[in-house]
Design a protein around this nucleic acid. Structure first.
Length: 158
DNA sequence: GCCAACGTTGGC
DNA sequence: GCCAACGTTGGC
C-alpha cells in the first residue's frame, strides 16, 4: 500500500463534500498535468491512502484522508464536450488523461496548515513544500505520512 | 489582486 | 531542439 497527496480547491470539491458522499466513492477527475497524470495512470492503486489538500483558499492545508477504491482509468471528463476538462485531442481509443476513484476515510479534527507542514523537519523532501511546486498528485513516503498524521490527530493537535 | 514559478506552445 | 511568449497555479 502506498501513500499520496491530492490537491483540490475546496470551492470546487472539498473534504467535507467527500465526507457527505460517504460511503459512495468520488471520481477524482480533471488532473491535466502530465507528471500527475502518470502517477494516476501508473502507480496509484486500490487501497492506497490519500491526503486531501485544500489549495487556493483561506485555510490551505491537509484536511483529511481518503482511500483509493479504483486504480487509474481514462478520465470521463476528457470526452465530455460540455466539461471544462474536455480535451478534443483525446479519444476512448487514445485517452490522454486518467482518473481514480476515492472514498472518504477520515477528516482531521483540525486541518494541518501549510505553514506547519513547511516548518516540519520531517517534511522537507515532500514535493508540496518545495519551492514553486505545482504538482497536484504526489507520492508521500511512509515516514512523512506518519509525521503528518501525528501532527493532525496526535496529542499536540488536541 | 499581485506576482513568482512553472508547464506548454509554437516559431524558427 | 532552442527558447521566448503565454497561460496557469497557488501562496500571500
Amino acid at each position: 500500500m502506498a501513500y499520496w497527496l491530492f490537491k483540490t480547491e475546496p470551492g470546487e470539491f472539498a473534504m467535507s463534500d467527500l465526507e457527505a458522499m460517504a460511503p459512495a466513492p468520488e471520481c477524482w477527475s480533471g488532473v491535466r498535468n502530465y507528471q500527475a497524470r502518470n502517477f494516476l495512470r501508473d502507480q496509484v492503486a486500490a487501497d492506497d491512502r490519500v491526503f486531501i489538500y485544500h489549495s487556493s483558499c483561506q485555510r490551505v492545508g491537509i484536511a483529511g484522508i481518503a482511500r483509493v477504491v479504483r486504480a487509474g482509468y481514462p478520465d470521463p471528463a476528457q470526452f465530455a464536450p460540455q466539461s471544462p476538462y474536455y480535451d478534443a485531442a483525446a479519444s476512448p481509443q487514445l485517452p490522454r488523461w486518467y482518473a481514480v476513484d476515492i472514498v472518504y476515510q477520515h477528516s482531521f479534527r483540525q486541518l494541518v496548515p501549510l505553514a506547519v507542514l513547511k516548518a516540519s523537519p520531517a517534511l522537507q523532501e515532500l514535493a508540496l513544500v518545495r519551492r514553486g511546486s505545482r504538482l497536484s498528485v504526489m507520492p508521500v513516503a511512509p515516514a512523512q505520512w506518519q509525521a503528518i498524521v501525528a501532527m493532525a490527530d496526535g496529542p499536540s493537535a488536541n
